[in-house]
Design a protein around this nucleic acid. Structure first.
Lengths: 204, 186
DNA sequence: GCTTTAAAAAGTAAGAT
DNA sequence: ATCTTACTTTGAAAAGC
C-alpha cells in the first residue's frame, strides 16, 4: 500500500534525522570536552549499537548520546567525570549516570572502574604542575590504593587529593581551592582523602 | 561459630495486604488523627504507627502497603493496629486479611575490609555495578537467592529484594563463599 | 518512567556556626 | 574547621498519570 510505503519512508527519514542529530551532538560535546577524534568515533559506534539493539526506546536521544560519549572516554582511557560531561550536555547528571549504567549493562561494555591516575595528567596541566608532581601524585595513588584506601571513593576526589599532596611534596604548592576547582570536588573531600593518603605514604 | 550470617539484622520489611473494602480516603483522613493525605501528590493516604514503628499507605481500593517495620511480626502487629482502627470507625475489615511480604532489607558485616575494585573484576563485570563516582557501594545481583547485595569497602553489606527471612542468610553465605574463593576475604 | 513510604550502607556536598 | 542535614544506590507494593 502506498500509505504504508510512505510511512516507512517517513519513519526511515525520521530515524536518519535522529541519528544525524545524535552524532552531531556527540561531536559538539566532544569538542567542548576537548577529547580526540578517536573518542568521538568510539562514542558513535556505541550510540549506533544502542540504536540497533533498541536501547533508546523510553530514553532521550541526547541522554544516550551523552552516555555513549562518557563511556567512550572511559573506554579510551581518558575519562571525564559525570560532572564534566553534564556541563556540556543538556541532560541532567543523574540521567546521564543512569543511562550510562543501562547501556553499559545491555551492550556488555564491561568497563573497569575508573582509575584515578587517568585524571592526573589533565588536572596537573590545568594547574601548570610539573612532570615531577604528576609522577609523585601517581605514586601516591598507587601506594594508597594498594593499601585499600580507594574502595568506594570518588576517583576525581582521590586524584585531586594526590595532586594536592604531590604539589606540597615537590614545593609547587597549589591551594586546596585551586585543585578542588579543576577536579570539581570540594575542599573538604580533598582534605579527607589527603589525610589518609599522607598516612599511607608513611608521612605521618 | 559466629560468622557474618550472625551479624544479619533486618532493617525494613515491606508488605502488602487488603481489607476487601473500598475506602473514602477523604473521610478517613479526617477520622484518623495523624493521617497524611495529598491526593495531588500521591493516591495513597499515609498513616504511621508508633509501636511498632511503621508506615502504611492506604489506598481507595482498600489495599494497603506497610513499610518501615523491623520484622515480619512487627508488620503483622502494625497492620493489626490499623485494621482495628478502621473497625473502630465502623469500616468492615476482613477477618484475617492475607499479608504478603514483598521485600526485606537486611544489613550485615563480613568482618573484613573489601577491595571493591578487585571484587568488581573477580565477581564478573557483567554481574556487577560499581561506580564510586556515583555511589560508594558495589551492586551485586545474585540469582539464587534472587537478591541484590550492596558491598562496601568496610565489609558492611546490605541485602535487599528478598521475600523470605532466610534469603539474607543464604545470600550472605553465598557471597562470603564467592569472595573467599577469589582470595579477597581478609 | 514518575509520584510516596521506610531503612541500611559510606561518600560527597551544602549551609550554618 | 567541624557539625548537621541531605542526597546518591538497591528492592517491592500500591493507583494513576
Amino acid at each position: 500500500r502506498l500509505r504504508k510505503w510512505q510511512e516507512r519512508i517517513r519513519t526511515k527519514d525520521a530515524g536518519e534525522r535522529n541519528l544525524q542529530f545524535a552524532l552531531s551532538e556527540i561531536d559538539r560535546m566532544a569538542s567542548a570536552l576537548g577529547v580526540p577524534r578517536s573518542v568521538r568515533e568510539v562514542a558513535s559506534v556505541i550510540y549506533r549499537r544502542a540504536l540497533n539493539e533498541d536501547l533508546i526506546r523510553g530514553r532521550s536521544i541526547e541522554g544516550v548520546a551523552t552516555s555513549a560519549l562518557y563511556a567512550a572516554c572511559r573506554q579510551e582511557g581518558i575519562p571525564r567525570s559525570l560532572d564534566e560531561v553534564a556541563e556540556v550536555s543538556r541532560v541532567p547528571q543523574k540521567e546521564i549516570g543512569r543511562t550510562y549504567r543501562y547501556i553499559s549493562q545491555e551492550l556488555g561494555l564491561e568497563l573497569k572502574p575508573v582509575d584515578p591516575k587517568q585524571f592526573v595528567p589533565r588536572f596537573a596541566s590545568a594547574l601548570n604542575l610539573s612532570e615531577e608532581v604528576q609522577a609523585k601524585a601517581t605514586e601516591i595513588i598507587d601506594v594508597s590504593a594498594e593499601q585499600g584506601l580507594l574502595s568506594g571513593k570518588s576517583p576525581t576526589g582521590f586524584a585531586a587529593a594526590a595532586i594536592y599532596a604531590a604539589s606540597l611534596l615537590c614545593n609547587e604548592k597549589k591551594t586546596q581551592r585551586e585543585v578542588a576547582d579543576v577536579a570539581q570536588v570540594t575542599e573538604v573531600t580533598i582534605r579527607n582523602r589527603y589525610q589518609e593518603q599522607i598516612e599511607a605514604m608513611g608521612f605521618r | 561459630m559466629s560468622g557474618p550470617a550472625d551479624s544479619i539484622e533486618i532493617q525494613n520489611v515491606v508488605a502488602s495486604t487488603g481489607i476487601g473494602q473500598e475506602l473514602d480516603l477523604e473521610a478517613l483522613a479526617d477520622d484518623l488523627p495523624g493521617a497524611d493525605f495529598n491526593p495531588d501528590n500521591f493516591p495513597g493516604l499515609v498513616y504511621r504507627t508508633q509501636e511498632p514503628k511503621a508506615a502504611a499507605l492506604i489506598f481507595r481500593s482498600g489495599k494497603i502497603v506497610c513499610t518501615g517495620a523491623k520484622s515480619i511480626d512487627d508488620v503483622h502487629e502494625a497492620l493489626g493496629i490499623i485494621f482495628d482502627k478502621l473497625r473502630e470507625l465502623s469500616i468492615p475489615v476482613d477477618e484475617e486479611p492475607e499479608i504478603t511480604v514483598q521485600n526485606i532489607v537486611s544489613s550485615a558485616d563480613l568482618g573484613h575490609n573489601l577491595n571493591l575494585n578487585a571484587l568488581a573484576i573477580g565477581l564478573g563485570l557483567e554481574d556487577v555495578e560499581y561506580e564510586p563516582e556515583q555511589f560508594p557501594g558495589l551492586v551485586y545481583r545474585m540469582d539464587e537467592p534472587k537478591v541484590v547485595i550492596l558491598l562496601f569497602g568496610s565489609g558492611k553489606i546490605v541485602i535487599t529484594g528478598g521475600k523470605r527471612t532466610d534469603d539474607a542468610e543464604t545470600a550472605v553465605e553465598e557471597i562470603v563463599e564467592r569472595i573467599d574463593a577469589l582470595g579477597l576475604l581478609g
